[in-house]
Design a protein around this nucleic acid. Sequence first.
DNA 1: ATAACATATGAACAGTTGTTCAAATGAAAG
DNA 2: CTTTCATTTGAACAACTGTTCATATGTTAT
Lengths: 121, 121
Amino acid sequence: MSNLIHHQPGEGEENLHPDLISSVNADMPDEDLLYDLAELFRIFADSTRIKILYVLFEAEMCVCDIAELLGMTQSAISHQLRLLKQSKLVKFRRDGKTVYYSLPDDHVRTIIGMGMEHLCE
Amino acid sequence: MSNLIHHQPGEGEENLHPDLISSVNADMPDEDLLYDLAELFRIFADSTRIKILYVLFEAEMCVCDIAELLGMTQSAISHQLRLLKQSKLVKFRRDGKTVYYSLPDDHVRTIIGMGMEHLCE
DNA sequence: ATAACATATGAACAGTTGTTCAAATGAAAG
DNA sequence: CTTTCATTTGAACAACTGTTCATATGTTAT
């Protein structure tokens, strides 16, 4: 059912129902938050980054290992890890020359799982 | 703890642990599915589309209403609704000249909720 | 038929993105 | 110190994305 008083028979040009406008404006997050949310999903919107996350599901791993597993250059992986790092989707620790990356919590797994669920139904 | 036999003291250049390579390859979805997953997240990776989805949280709505609520042209909204439609994130019905869009299930709400949860913690 | 309205679509444009290449940084060992 | 290895970074480039504008499609009413 629509809450609109729009496009009903016998009526000319109408505006939206005022209550609906209020509801939408009340529930719509701030512009900045919406932008950040889009930016977060943009991180998941690349199959290379998703592959990196899938690899990290298995174990903590260093940059050159990820590169080797995915058959890509270490530079490309490092660039993508930077984005993942900035969005706090991976954490890292340094051990000598090597930097180990891993998943900070189960958030990533849950979000990717949601996406898979939508795709596979 | 790392499952790697890589970079251990006294060893030269090493490869990844074979068991780990097997695990990664076994759990990594097919290339096509990973691409589709990235494509799905790409749909959420734009604040205009997120706004449209938020508006549809409130009620079924036609294109010109969404355009008016968001202060954007009807053409821009229609282009974005096409992408949302293709990804089955919105459904629609025609009633005379008007096309009403709505959310098919709670999937969208859940996915956006997951994103918000990650942002706001 | 024509007119009016809602929506959809195609081309074009500026802005953004992912990879490559080359070079820089950081850390351990000789 | 210099060398070596792992990683990071910046510039450049092709590929892609979102909006605008103009136009087309589809529906209803006259």
